[in-house]
Simulated assay, not measured.
Amino acid sequence: MLPEVTATRYVTPLREGGSLPGIVEADDLGTYVMKFTGAGQGRKSLVAEVVCGRLAQRLGLRVPELVGIHLDPVVGLGEPDEEVQALLRASGGLNLGMDYLPGSLGFDPAGFGADPVLAGRVVWFDALIGNVDRSWRNPNMLVWHGDLWLIDHGASMIWHHNWPTAHSASAKPYDASDHALAPFSPDLAAAEQELAPKVTGDLLAEVVADVPDVWLADEPGFDGPDAVRRAYVEVLQERAASVGGRIVLGERRESRSRPPEWLRVWVEGKAAR
């Protein structure tokens, strides 16, 4: 199960996140990026964070440590923003925290790189979980002490929003053409050979066991949290067996992949020097 802490201070919202996560301090003296059950994406976003984050860690990829954070909404009474206040009031109870990495930088392909082996492992992992949220526009990766860290998996496994179609939806190809690491010649064959055998039923069962019952309760079509956990195991194990053959690494579409002007100017200036 996830370690659990209690929020003691709401520090500041992170407005670049669509679900308005916030930085909080907790009673273990740790600082966390907190994601809320009351956010628009709801508890399934937190389930995806736990399943994907734990699975990435078990496959040898770097993800900030995860904790459950108990929130008393009075913790944020000093926050003047009404939107934040509403979010806190809607999120009393157990929420999710990710270890805050102080001094980390957002991954920028113009300033950082990745070797083909690491790039291949990340792309293969994202294909497994159906992560559509790691493009050049929004890499959702940090560089901390020279290492690449993966963050923000809440939009992954979109099929768990409609369980009756989960198996057919998860069987679709994964288009990695706009993936943030596509330019680094990801070695997908090596990744498939290394990672696919590790995604066993036992491993997945251990991963989904970390999802709190309260986030899985009352799921339509299931008779309890354990039944929901088994569904995640079945879909992910099925996908792991064949996803390598369904990854598309085509040429980026110019209309979608043109870099922002500030990045183009920065790269040209760097080349001129």
Rank of each mutant, 00 (worst) to 15 (best):
K198L: 15
L101M: 11
D152K: 13
Q193P: 01
H179M: 09
T37Q: 14
T31Q: 08
M34R: 10
E79Q: 13
V208H: 12
Y174K: 05
P197D: 10
L87E: 02
L263P: 00
R89H: 09
N131D: 09
E65S: 14
V5E: 13
G269S: 10
E16H: 09
L88M: 05
G245N: 12
A26I: 06
N95E: 02
V33E: 02
L101K: 02
D81N: 14
A209Y: 03
A86R: 15
T6N: 07
H167V: 09
E268P: 03
G120Q: 01
V208T: 10
N162M: 03
L2K: 09
V265F: 07
L55T: 03
L105W: 07
G18D: 04
W124G: 03
C52L: 03
I129Q: 03
S242N: 12
V24H: 05
A26E: 00
R273Q: 07
D28M: 02
H160I: 05
L71M: 10
N131A: 08
T6C: 11
G60E: 08
L87V: 09
E234L: 05
E25M: 08
L87W: 04
G78A: 13
L105P: 01
D126H: 04
G154K: 02
G40A: 13
M98I: 01
E83F: 04
T31S: 10
V50I: 15
L101R: 12
F107P: 01
V214Q: 15
F36T: 14
E82Q: 14
L66H: 09
R54Y: 01
S45T: 12
A119I: 11
D210G: 06
W266N: 10
F36E: 06
G97D: 05
D72F: 02
G93I: 10
R258A: 09
G113L: 02
E238D: 11
D27L: 06
P21F: 05
A176F: 00
V24E: 00
P186H: 07
A231M: 09
D213T: 08
L88C: 12
S19K: 00
D108Y: 07
A189D: 15
L66V: 12
V67H: 10
V63C: 06
A240S: 14
S177A: 13
N162Q: 12
G106S: 11
L71E: 09
G18T: 13
